[in-house]
Amino acid sequence: MRSFGTNATHTGGSAIKAPRTAVLARPARDRRAPAIEVRHLAFTYPGDPPRPALDDVSLEVASGELVAVIGANGTGKSTLLKLVGGLLEARSGEVAVLGRAVREPDARVGFVFQEPRLLPWRTTLENVAFPLELAGRPRPERDGRARDLLALVGAADVGGLRPHQLSGGTRQRAAIARALALDPGILLLDEPFSALDALTRERFNVVLQSIWRSTQTTILLVTHSIPEAIFLADRVLVLAGRPGRVVTEVPIRLPRPRTLADQDATMVSEAASRIRAALGAPPDPARPAGEVM
């Protein structure tokens, strides 16, 4: 099991030791029903005045795929994730997960919120074990699994501490561990790394990639960071406007596993400028894409 390695002095580049295969992109995925399917989804928050958040969004995420959603503040990224996760009810359009229409949260879907949202009265270990406890797993099993998960995200030593005693980054690690507790086939990640410093963030990206590869989960990742989206995703969906719509889809055809050094590739800067253009920012060829956050 790879760990986030809290004390590593290097940035992520050398953290990947897995042999790189020569193939471009991942092998073509089987064309079963997509893991996530969204059709003509619109959503307006009720109220006075009502707040439209999403307008006619359609997307598909294949099983095992990692798709990033990028967009400015308020373009409905979190709303989209909550609709897919069954935390909001889709009244207009369709949302299906693993071939089933979403009505309520699904046990096969793990959620990481934009904030860590740990229960302050529980230890970190108990927080990670929370979904297992709700699912009625016996105590020894949940403790063991929670410990494994904390080790997986590189926070093995903080199990006994309360959330307020953790750094923001460690809290987020715990939130990711909690989302993995029930071994979900689909992970919905809402800006999971926004609280992290740039270097830690790069390391997390490397590890998220390896978790994704080893667990074969489908991931829908919301992010603000173009480099992060390009580093992690098979495809990047750009959301823009209020209410938000998918304005562009940029495939990222880089070999896996990716390293942070890949960010210098021509492909990366091309993808980055396409994404930036779709986001509405003026293209800036003088700046290397890897540094744009």
Binding site: G85, L87, E104, P105, A107, F111, F113, E115, R117, L119, F130, P131, E133, L134, A135, L182
Partner: peptide, 21 residues
């Protein structure tokens, strides 16, 4: 409310919401 939403995301029953959250 955000914690209650966590409870929903992990499919807490109404009784679990009461006792755990």
């Amino acid at each position: 409310r955000q914690l209650l939403e966590v409870g929903r995301a992990f499919r807490a029953t109404p009784l679990q919401v009461l006792t755990r959250l």
